[in-house]
Structures are given as structure tokens and as C-alpha cells.
Design a protein around this nucleic acid. Structure first.
Length: 419
RNA sequence: GGAGAGGUGGCCGAGUGGUUGAAGGCGCACGCUUGGAAAGCGUGUAAAGGAGCAAUUCUUUCAUGGGUUCGAAUCCCAUUCUCUCCGCCA
């Protein structure tokens, strides 16, 4: 969310910056509502002052007048409430402003490759897709998931389940011991206000799974990413400068409706309603966002380096970025069966956008109260890493070589094969 | 499901109708002290919003929303969240 004060200061450049997002929002309406709102505030405040003075004077002859003022204030309040509500509604639906580094563009085709790394494997046979490999090994079972649950779910079995667990542990260990993140095992449900804090609500309610609890309790949602719950750790806090930066990591299941992606990636486990993901979150001083973004992205690519998987780093164009982000790097891993790179991690700086929603602040050296910067990044999506390993490390006989760094996590298993 | 307690500043914690934005402590900042540090002592330290180029100033805020009153952190009602005990389940 944006600060109205800042928008007001330079309305035109705000409007211009938003154009990059190529969505239309009625900013004139916003401008007018803001003007009206402030008029109400001024009227109200002068009345309140008058009333306060009467009360302080304890002059009984003025008590009647004070009552009248109260009525007048009430009237203004009613009018202001309407204005303020629509103001906030508009405001909470405006996305973050893209950073100036961010290339202009409409969709993923306009993203720009920043770097490439690793060696693309060469096969003397036609490489199979992850779901062929997994099904042949009898370790990925989509039909079974359909039977028990429905589409876009999968059973991972046996050695692949072990691999999935190993990936989670390996990634967590790396981020905890090497990269300075604190491990968190968080709740998988988030309250409505928490979902608002990171920007999933109100605009993207359709993508969320809501859980019905007993009546009388607030709304609860399954987290679509651990970002939601990790970032909101600092909701409503004023953090002391010396405890920044805060870095959290968690490995959690994520739940997404994937509404609007019907027919997309229906085969295999690229796009599921439920998947594991290791998520990093950083809370930093606002001017350190971009620096932290580079650091975080390196933490993510470090995992791929360790796993010896080929990947490229892409900077997202303005049209492809998420609602809360000011700048995003996607890390894409090479998938032999598709002969292209696919997203495996997304690292974003959200500048103060989420902090304003969450009311997360810190005091700088000058004792000014400022909004923190927040960042989040996958490090990495476990399901997709599993896919990448299956496809990149497949052998002609359909077996899978286990990446070296994972073997200590898998009883030194070197190869996954039938039996 | 039954019974009870409570939500106050960065944190802890006083405060039951009138300069209370709020005692005290912790933390933090600065200063004194010291060879240096610690301790000790002193001073300072809420947020949001409005007006103003600014210094400044005004309003609001003691979970949230209503009510009583000239006046509410303090009284009344509703909601919400947290905690404790019993039951139930794991």
C-alpha cells in the first residue's frame, strides 16, 4: 500500500510510475476523495478544539453549546466515513510501483535474462518428462491423488518422497548455517488481516483456500506461500534498529487455487494445488532493499549451484511482477523434456509496500520512525526442484542419479531406480 | 462444550470520571564519572493524522465499535483476541 502523503506530494509522477503496471485505476477519483477527506478533517478538528476548550473551562453555561457541537461532529463523521472507506478501498487495490531498474513490458515475454549458469546436460537418448520418469519408477502417482482428492494433486512415494524430504532439509540447513536465516516452523493458516498485510487480500481472494472454522472466529486461509506468515511476524511492530535485518526461513506446504490457469501445465507436478516450498523472508531498513535482494537471490542460486542444476536469472518486466513487488528476479531451471527454462524461484523486494499494510516500522539513527523494507524469495520450490532433478539427472534406463550434496541426507543413496 | 480473568506507550507494568499522553521500571540516546569499560548518577525518549516552506501548532489514539456525561483509559453494552480451570480429543 502506498502512503497518501507521498502520492499527494507528487501526484503526476505517481500516476506516471503506475502506468508501467499497465492497469487502469481512477486516480482522479482518488485525488478528489483525498481532498474531501481532508476538508472533513479540518472542519472536525476545529469543532473538536472548541468542545475540548469548553470541557476544560468547566463553565456550566457553555455545556449546552458543547452538546450542539457534538451533534455537528457526528454529522461530519458520518460523511467522512463514507469518503474514507472508498479512499482506502482504492488505495489497497493499487499495486506497488516498479523500481526504475525494472524493464517495461506486458508479460513474461518481456522479461530480460540477466545471467546463465551451469551446464545443460546432453543426452544420447530422448529425455523423458518428470512425470513419465516418476510414473515408470512408480514413485509419482497422479491417478491415486485423483482418486483420493482430485486434480492438481500428487502422491510422491518411496525414494522420491525421501528425495523430497532431503531437498527440504538440505535447503533449510544451507540457509540456516551458511546464509544466516532463522528457522521457523509456522502455522499454515493465516488470518484475514495477515493476508491483507502481504497483499493477498483483498484483491486476490479467488486464489486462496479459505478454511471454515467454528462460527464466531475470524476468517482463516491456507497460506499460498510461507511469505505470508513469515513476513507478518513483524506486523504492528516498531523494530529496534539494532535487530535489523531479520531473516527467516521456513519449509512449508503451500496451497493455491490456481484459478485462471485452467488447461495450463495440467500434466505432471509443475502446477499443483499443494506443494512444498522453502521460503526466505528478510525485514530490512528501507534503503537496503535492493542490496538485500541481490543477497537473497544469491542464496537461492547457491542452492542450484550446489545441486549442479543449470539455470538462468531473469529480471521480471513491469507487467509480469506480483502485486506487492517493486523488483523481482525469477530463477529458472532447465527442463530437458520441455527444452526450456522454468521458474523455480522468485525473489522480490516489496520496498515499504507490505510494511505500510502491516504497520511495521523501525527507528533509524535519527530516531525517525520509518517503514521497513520487506523481501521474500523461494529458496527453492521443492516440487519443481524435484522435477528438475528427475529430468536433468535421468539415465537411459530411467534411473536417476542423486546429486552429491543430497546423498548425506538419503543414507548415501546414489541412484534411484526401480526396486 | 462449561466456568473465570484480561487486552494500557519499543517492552514490562500502575492507574476507576476532570491539564493522564498517561506513574514506575526495562530498553534506547546523550551527558557526567573512569586510564578505559562496567556500575552509578543526570537528562531525554509514543504513534497516527491535519495545517504550515519551516520553526511550530492542532486533533485523535489506553483491543475494536457503540452508549452515558459538559468531560471517559476509568462507568454501561456489543464484538474480537489472548490466557487460566473443567470436560472432550490427540
Amino acid at each position: 500500500m502506498h502512503n497518501l502523503k507521498d502520492i499527494r506530494k507528487d501526484f503526476d509522477s505517481f500516476e506516471k510510475a503506475l502506468e508501467k503496471r499497465s492497469i487502469d485505476i481512477d486516480l482522479n477519483n482518488l485525488k478528489n476523495l483525498d481532498l474531501q477527506n481532508r476538508e472533513f478533517i479540518q472542519k472536525k478538528e476545529s469543532l473538536e478544539k472548541e468542545k475540548k476548550d469548553i470541557s476544560k473551562s468547566k463553565d456550566k453555561s457553555l455545556f449546552e453549546k458543547s452538546k450542539e457541537i457534538s451533534l455537528a461532529i457526528e454529522k461530519i463523521n458520518e460523511q467522512q466515513k463514507i469518503v474514507k472507506e472508498s479512499l482506502e478501498k482504492i488505495l489497497s487495490n493499487i499495486p506497488n510501483i516498479p523500481h526504475k531498474d525494472v524493464p517495461n513490458g506486458n508479460d513474461e515475454n518481456d522479461n530480460i535474462e540477466v545471467s546463465k549458469s551451469g551446464k545443460i546436460p546432453k543426452f544420447d537418448f530422448t529425455p523423458k518428462s518428470h512425470y513419465e520418469l516418476g510414473e515408470n519408477l512408480r514413485m509419482l502417482d497422479f491417478d491415486l491423488a485423483t482418486k483420493t482428492t482430485g486434480s492438481r494433486f500428487v502422491f510422491v512415494k518411496s525414494k522420491l518422497a525421501l528425495l523430497e524430504r532431503a531437498l527440504s532439509n538440505f535447503m533449510l540447513d544451507t540457509h540456516i548455517m551458511k546464509n544466516g536465516y532463522e528457522e521457523i516452523s509456522p502455522p499454515l493458516l493465516a488470518s484475514e488481516n495477515t493476508m491483507f498485510g502481504t497483499g493477498q487480500l483483498p484483491k486476490f481472494e479467488n486464489d486462496q483456500f479459505e478454511i471454515k472454522l467454528e462460527a464466531g472466529t475470524g476468517r482463516k486461509f491456507l497460506i499460498p506461500t510461507a511469505e505470508v506468515i513469515l513476513t507478518n511476524i513483524v506486523k504492528n511492530n516498531i523494530i529496534e534498529l539494532k535487530s535489523l535485518p531479520l531473516r527467516y526461513v521456513a519449509s512449508t506446504p503451500c496451497f493455491r487455487k490456481e484459478a485462471g490457469s485452467y488447461g495450463k501445465d495440467t500434466k505432471g507436478m509443475i502446477r499443483q494445488h499443494q506443494f512444498y516450498k522453502v521460503e526466505m523472508v528478510s525485514i530490512v531498513e528501507q534503503e537496503k532493499c535492493l542490496e538485500e535482494l541481490e543477497r537473497m537471490t544469491n542464496c537461492a542460486t547457491g542452492i542450484l549451484d550446489d545441486l549442479e542444476l543449470p539455470y538462468r536469472k531473469v529480471i521480471l518486466c513491469s507487467g509480469d511482477m506480483g502485486f506487492s513487488a517493486e523488483k523481482t528476479y525469477d530463477i529458472e531451471v532447465w527442463l530437458p523434456s520441455e527444452n526450456k527454462y522454468r521458474e523455480i524461484s522468485s525473489c522480490s523486494s516489496c520496498s515499504t509496500f507490505q510494511s505500510i499494510r502491516m504497520k511495521t516500522r523501525y527507528k533509524n539513527q535519527k530516531k525517525e520512525t520509518l517503514y521497513t523494507g520487506t523481501l521474500n524469495g523461494s529458496g527453492l520450490a521443492i516440487g519443481r526442484t524435484l522435477i528438475a532433478i528427475l529430468e536433468n539427472f535421468q539415465q537411459k534406463d530411467g534411473s536417476i542419479t542423486v546429486p552429491k550434496v543430497l546423498r548425506p541426507y538419503m543414507n548415501n543413496l546414489e541412484k534411484i531406480s526401480l526396486n
